[in-house]
């Protein structure tokens, strides 16, 4: 009988432990008055140089199967992205192009916590290497609700920012 109760207690403790820690304690990653601003997109920045017409002598030096009239540099500029909320920078990062030859798209993914409220959002991006100016920018008035996931993207076909 003693053994029976011992087993009963053990099984009860086992069940309680399994049941409890499968859901408790809850994990809170955001405060009640907080929201998330997510930035996610890929963008191919401008190439570091213009294409150049090759001279006939330069073309003739190339292997026959690789002869072409232009020489275009593959590398792309780093991309600078800045996001301000009511004038305060909440994200600013220089993103390098992907690929072994730095000729691919630059990827950005970030999630930033922000207090819920009314904001004037400014999004600026530079992909041409010219310092001190943005090639693309957007200013938008928005109300960010508690628990909202505000997503900022970039449409490469129209070169405009998307806020949803």
């Amino acid at each position: 009988m003693r053994r029976f109760f011992g087993q009963l207690i053990t099984y009860a403790a086992f069940a309680a432990g399994i049941g409890l820690f499968s859901v408790w304690p809850d994990y809170r990653m955001l405060g009640d008055d907080e929201a998330i601003v997510s930035i996610t997109f890929s963008h191919a920045a401008k190439r570091v140089g213009e294409c150049r017409q090759l001279t006939p002598a330069e073309i003739s030096e190339l292997p026959p199967n690789m002869r072409k009239p232009n020489s275009c540099p593959r590398e792309r500029h780093p991309m600078y992205l800045e996001i301000r909320a009511n004038g305060e920078i909440i994200f600013a990062e220089t993103l390098l192009p992907s690929g072994m030859w730095s000729d691919g798209k630059a990827n950005v993914y970030n999630r930033t916590r922000i207090k819920a409220g009314d904001y004037r959002l400014f999004i600026g991006m530079n992909d041409s290497g010219d310092q001190g100016r943005f090639d693309y920018e957007l200013s938008v008035e928005t109300e960010i609700e508690s628990g909202q996931n505000l997503v900022i993207g970039f449409d490469g076909s129209s070169n405009t920012f998307l806020v949803e």
Partner: peptide
């Protein structure tokens, strides 16, 4: 033991996923 636990404290889902909203807290396993 697990059968009894399943009857007494069945496993349930949390609210349906909504990607427009940021998850504020979860009952973590």
């Amino acid at each position: 033991c697990m059968l009894v636990l399943s009857f007494v404290f069945p496993a349930v889902s949390q609210n349906k996923a909504n990607l427009a909203k940021a998850t504020q807290s979860v009952d973590l396993d």
